[in-house]
Design a protein around this nucleic acid. Structure first.
Lengths: 230, 230
DNA sequence: TCTGCTCGTCACAGAATCGTCACGTTCGCT
DNA sequence: AGCGAACGTGACGATTCTGTGACGAGCAGA
C-alpha cells in the first residue's frame, strides 16, 4: 500500500506501530532519531511520516520543518504524535505543515484509521500535473507558474493560495476557510492576512489576477472558466 | 456560529463541553440521555451532535442510527466521544456514519479543533449544489444566481435571504424568524428591515421576484413550485 | 553579523451595503 | 364606505468591507 516512516525513540512503541502498519499492508521504515529520520526520508521517499514530537536529538517540529524545506521530502504527509497540551496549535501551524495529529495516549486502531484518512486525502490531491487555465499555466510538481507565457515568481504561500483557489474554482472560499486550509490556522481571529495575500497574488498574476474574484461579505472565488479575459 | 447538541451523561464533562463550546461562540444544547438527545435533535435541529458512546439508557451508536434514519436529523454531523477500544470501527462504519471521533481522555483544544474542522467540511459540502426553480437558478457554492439565464448580482445578505426563503419554500417565514435566521438578531424589535430587503431582493430578481409572496400579517413565503410564472 | 526576502499587521480611503425613516398604497375589518 | 394596520417604496446617512501602501519582525543564507 504505502511506505510509512516511523520516527519514534521508544522501542516498544516503534515495535507496535511497525507491526500493526505492516499488518495493514504498509511498507514500514523505522528511525529512532531526528537525524536518522531525515536521512531515511530522503533515501526511502515515504508517503507518510509518523513523527513523535519529542525526540532524543531534537524536536519533531524541527524535523518537520526540515522535511518541508527539502525539495525531496517537501510533499510527504506528516502525522504528528503529540502529548496533550497546547503544542497542538503549533503542530498544525503553517510553518510545520502537519497533515494530522494523534494525541497520546492513543489506540492503534485510531492511528491506523487516521493514517488511512491522510493517505486517502493525499491520493486525491496528488494529481500533480501541469494545468492550463486561460492565461495561466501551473506546474504543481515544479512549483512554477506562467502568465501569458511569462514565468511569474510566487512565494510558497502565494503558490499554495493560488492552487487552493484554483482547485476549488467556482466555489467561494471564506477567509476562515482559506486561513485554515492555506495557513493552517484554526483560531477565530480577525485578520486581514488573507486579503493582503490575495492582493499580492493578484498583483503578481497581472492580467490573470482577475480570475480571483471578490465576493463581498463572503470571501474569494476563482473564476469558473477562463472565458472573457482576452 | 453553529448549534451543537451535546449528548453526555457525566455532568462535569457536560459542563466543560458546554462552557468551552459557548465560549467559542456556539449555541449549545445539552442532553443526558439518548432519548432526550433524539428529541432535542429533532426539535432544535443542531448542526453538530457530540455524542458519547456510553449512555445510561442505551448506546450512542443506537442514537446515531436513529439520527441517520430520521429524515429531520439525517444530515446532522456527528462526532462520537469514545473510550479506547475496538468500537471505533463501528463508529466510523458505514452504518453509523459518524463524521469524526474523539478518544477519551481528550483535551478541550483537540475537541474544539475537530468540531471546527467537521463544521467547515459540512459547510463546504452543503454548498455543492446548483438548484433550478423555474426562472431561477442558484449555485450556492459559487454564490451566484441567474434569472432567465442572466446572472444577477446579489449582496451577501440578499443571497442568504433568498436561500433561506427558497429552502423553506411553501412555508411562511415570520419577520422575527427571518430576522433571527438571516440577520442573527433575536431581540424583539419592531423593524422594517426585513421588508426593505425583501423589496430589494424582489427588485433584483425581476420576474422571479414574484416567487416571494407576502402573507399579510404573518410574513413571507417562497412559492411552492415555479408553476404559473410564464 | 548583515542582508534580503517573506509575511503579518496597521491605518487610511473609497465604495458598497445596510438599516432606518417618512410617505404612499393596499388590504382587511367593521 | 371608512379607517387603521400592514406593507411597498425611495432616499439618506451610518456602517462595514475591501484594496492599498507601508512598516517592522523574523527567518534563512551568505
Amino acid at each position: 500500500m504505502a511506505r510509512i516512516l516511523v520516527v519514534e525513540d521508544e522501542a516498544d512503541i516503534q515495535e507496535i506501530l511497525a507491526y500493526n502498519l505492516k499488518r495493514d499492508g504498509h511498507d514500514v521504515v523505522v528511525a529512532s532519531t531526528s537525524k536518522d529520520g531525515l536521512r531515511l526520508a530522503r533515501e526511502r521517499r515515504p508517503d507518510l511520516v509518523l513523527l513523535d514530537l519529542m525526540l532524543p536529538d531534537g524536536s519533531g517540529t524541527d524535523l518537520c520543518k526540515s522535511l518541508r524545506r527539502d525539495s525531496v521530502t517537501r510533499g510527504v504527509r506528516v502525522i504528528m504524535l503529540t502529548a496533550k497540551g497546547e503544542e497542538i496549535d503549533r503542530v498544525l501551524g503553517f510553518e510545520l505543515g502537519a497533515d494530522d495529529y494523534i494525541v497520546k495516549p492513543f489506540s492503534v486502531r485510531e492511528l491506523l484509521l487516521r493514517v488511512q484518512a491522510v493517505l486517502r486525502r493525499a491520493a486525491t490531491e496528488d494529481a500533480a500535473e501541469t494545468t492550463q487555465f486561460g492565461l495561466l499555466r501551473v506546474d504543481r510538481g515544479a512549483h512554477r507558474v506562467w502568465v501569458e507565457g511569462q514565468e511569474v515568481e510566487l512565494t510558497a504561500l502565494e503558490f499554495k493560495l493560488l492552487i487552493t483557489l484554483h482547485d476549488r474554482r467556482n466555489r467561494v472560499q471564506s477567509r476562515d476557510s482559506l486561513l485554515s486550509d492555506v495557513w493552517k490556522i484554526d483560531a477565530d481571529v480577525t485578520t486581514r492576512t488573507v486579503d493582503t495575500h490575495v492582493k499580492r497574488l493578484r498583483e503578481k498574476l497581472g492580467a490573470a489576477g482577475a480570475y480571483i474574484e471578490t465576493v463581498r461579505g463572503v470571501g474569494y472565488r476563482f473564476a469558473e472558466g477562463p472565458g472573457g479575459l482576452i
